[in-house]
Design a protein around this nucleic acid. Structure first.
Lengths: 223, 223
DNA sequence: ATTAATTGTGTCCGATGGACACAGTAATGC
DNA sequence: GCATTACTGTGTCCATCGGACACAATTAAT
């Protein structure tokens, strides 16, 4: 299971493979980027190579693993930076993660629940935690911290990107319902009224709030 | 689309319906609770009533809408509380939301991406925002605040509950990989070493961090 | 009693992920 | 040089999925 993500392939006898795992994953990514993850089927990937559907199963055990390989390849390694204060480092880390999701919206769909961990995903985690090594937080807290950040990035990405502008959709659907049912949700209606034009601020807002909270904890831990 | 979630059904001529939308949704929830959302197929739901698969389409347009009805019914209305300070109110709100996900893990899978909004889900949003009406934040900020909280709850729920103990799975998979690849992820390995026994603290940790950040903003806004 | 609307049933379809047997290919041992 | 053996891609087959559509039965309105 982890071999195809971590271990190198060794070759011996037999016909030369017409396709490689990397080519399969690349084709899958290409399809997912342009037509969404739902369009990625074994048949569709095979047609793009082109090869028979069952030929794919010689290189990848099943679709689950294919998506895992696709995901780790699409995430890519985290950008390298010179040493920064933890807060700035974490913020750019979060924004870069957001950029990845913006580039491959289907990752939001692919990276949910229990999944296989790839080297690139681990590298991202490593870089996130790296920013907190001198913070005075213990390992568990460091994990939790980057988990809160990444989950926020993920959720904001899901509402701004995803398939079509979901934020528009949500706002419109909400306004549509509140037009007739405002009385049942008074606080919600009131908030909608004073919301104004500050849209797409969700990422920045949550990021600053979380970082503020972390800063409070860290400074209290150090002093 | 929204009629089946909001509007009441009116009857006229024709045979008396053998099943109702509520019964269909209840059957779906029963299946999802015990066997997971993936086990919920039209055929499976129909068999449990028992009725033919195509009979369901007389009451619900498609599976998407069925899942939407199931979701809103499973969420249920938010618990009522007497007036509390905003921080305490938001914290209990988040914990109650977590409890809902713990009771119906498949909701995590069902409530992602663009979906139909049901009255119960809106009621939850309303209660969350209600806690912030006197906070001095404008509507947009109130939205963003409960969005950060709910996304954190959701993500923690996804890693602690979901299908099987994912936290165990993640920790084990992580330890397994780090056993051989620790050199590639030094910060990660170091954090794992000092993590110790403080597991399942992710929900509390993130919650306090976010609330701290909100408190900082609110007190700054008021003073 | 006739009409018309609405119900559940049965049949059919394309697409999905995957099992399995088979024939061809290339490196190894003799 | 030749047979062996491991490996590759192909073709066929299957259960299951969501859904379209025609049809017969039922019940309220006329």
């Amino acid at each position: 299971m982890t071999e195809l993500l971590w271990g190198p392939q060794h070759r011996s006898r037999g016909p030369k493979p017409a396709i490689t795992l990397a080519e399969i994953a690349a084709a899958g990514i290409r399809i997912a980027d342009t037509e969404g993850l739902d369009a990625v089927s074994m048949q569709r990937v095979a047609d793009d190579l082109p090869v028979t559907k069952m030929a794919l199963y010689r290189h990848v055990p099943g679709k689950t693993e294919l998506v895992a390989v696709m995901s780790d390849l699409a995430i890519g390694p985290p950008p390298a930076h010179s040493k920064q204060p933890w807060r700035q480092a974490l913020k750019t880390w979060a924004l870069e993660l957001y950029a990845v999701f913006a580039e491959h919206p289907w990752l939001l769909q692919a990276m949910i629940g229990r999944r296989l961990l790839g080297p690139n995903e681990l590298a991202w985690m490593d870089r996130g935690i790296q920013a907190l090594t001198d913070s005075g937080l213990d390992g568990g807290e460091q994990f939790d911290a980057i988990l809160v950040l990444s989950s926020h990035v993920r959720n904001i990405a899901q509402q701004t990107i995803s398939t079509g502008l979901t934020e528009e959709h949500l706002n419109q659907a909400l306004a549509e319902i509140l037009a007739t049912e405002a009385a049942r949700f008074p606080s919600l209606a009131a908030a909608m009224r004073t919301a104004g034009g500050n849209q797409n601020q969700g990422l920045e807002f949550g990021l600053e709030r979380i970082l503020d909270g972390l800063e409070l904890l860290i400074s209290g831990r150090k002093g």
